[in-house]
């Protein structure tokens, strides 16, 4: 975060006004955030909202007879992870297939890939989830969970296809020509020459797809799959603690996505350093 803030100043150039000490701004920012939060809280109190934060831990975990049990929200988080874990490799596979088909010399392959991309890009993900869940799942006899995983995979696959395309196109033309002149077949060129060079470039953007996947998996709560958002909706209906539950759910997602983003940044830096060496 700090580096971006500095770089924005660098781009916009020297400033004419004398600089304030940064801690004044930081303090003001903290005051502003606390103030906003305070306003929201007093507003809720003015509506006679009955805060019941003491009931929240029970939704996260419980200890019954000395035995540790996860609460519904954490159970939901694990389902979210499960969906993400299945969807990520599937989305990567769909993306790679699409990218290769788009570059192939087969007109049917290109038409299929383009059609798929246009269909996914021009419809809302919520409608895609409904179509997979209510139309394709009964047609193919799939369960609800798999319908959701497939809907998410096909949606993210369109983004992954762009990442693969960019990665493949970043490989120098000379590499293709060299392997052509050696008489290597096109499939082998991809396998031994192009993809080994392209994949390290694609890894960082592909891993950041995890964050997108986790965020998009919340949309699956519109159908019956028991991810974190669904659990939150259920618990709101059951306990009427709308504010506490939604704030907690938001915080859980925030912790997960921010942690992942930081990890991915570290990973990216490591790859960059290795490729520079």
């Amino acid at each position: 975060m700090a580096s971006t803030v500095e770089s924005t100043t660098a781009v916009t150039g020297a400033t004419s006004a004398p600089k304030r000490a940064p801690w004044i701004d930081l303090a003001q920012f903290v005051v502003l955030v606390v103030g906003l939060f305070y306003l929201a809280m007093t507003g809720a109190n003015a509506l006679n909202y009955n805060w019941q934060w003491y009931r929240m831990p029970k939704l996260l975990y419980r200890v019954i007879d000395g035995e540790f049990v996860w609460g519904p929200l954490m159970e939901g988080l694990f389902v979210t992870f499960e969906i993400t874990a299945w969807s990520l490799p599937l989305a990567a596979a769909i993306g790679l297939t699409t990218a290769l088909l788009r570059r192939s010399n087969s007109f049917a392959g290109r038409a299929l890939a383009t059609g798929y991309l246009q269909l996914i890009r021009n419809t809302p993900i919520l409608v895609q989830v409904y179509i997979f869940y209510f139309v394709f799942a009964p047609m193919f006899g799939l369960g609800g969970f798999w319908a959701c995983v497939l809907a998410l995979s096909f949606h993210e696959g369109s983004f992954a296809a762009e990442i693969f395309r960019a990665g493949i196109e970043s490989v120098h033309k000379g590499q293709w020509e060299a392997s052509d002149s050696l008489g290597i077949k096109r499939a082998d060129t991809y396998r031994y020459v192009v993809l080994p060079q392209a994949i390290p470039l694609m890894l960082p953007p592909l891993t950041s797809q995890i964050v997108t996947l986790i965020k998009h998996s919340s949309i699956l709560s519109a159908v019956a799959v028991f991810d974190l958002t669904t659990m939150a909706l259920d618990q709101v209906a059951e306990t009427f603690m709308a504010f506490e539950i939604w704030l907690t759910t938001g915080a859980i997602y925030l912790v997960v996505t921010v942690t992942l983003s930081v990890l991915i940044n570290l990973f990216e830096n490591r790859i960059r350093r290795r490729s520079q060496r």
Partner: peptide, 24 residues
């Protein structure tokens, strides 16, 4: 060039982009 404004806008963007759409 005011740090406060950068913090506010950055905080807003990160808040929206790191919470999934449905809970948001």
């Amino acid at each position: 060039d005011v740090l406060l404004l950068r913090l506010v806008s950055r905080g807003y963007v990160e808040f929206v982009r790191n919470i999934p759409p449905v809970p948001f």
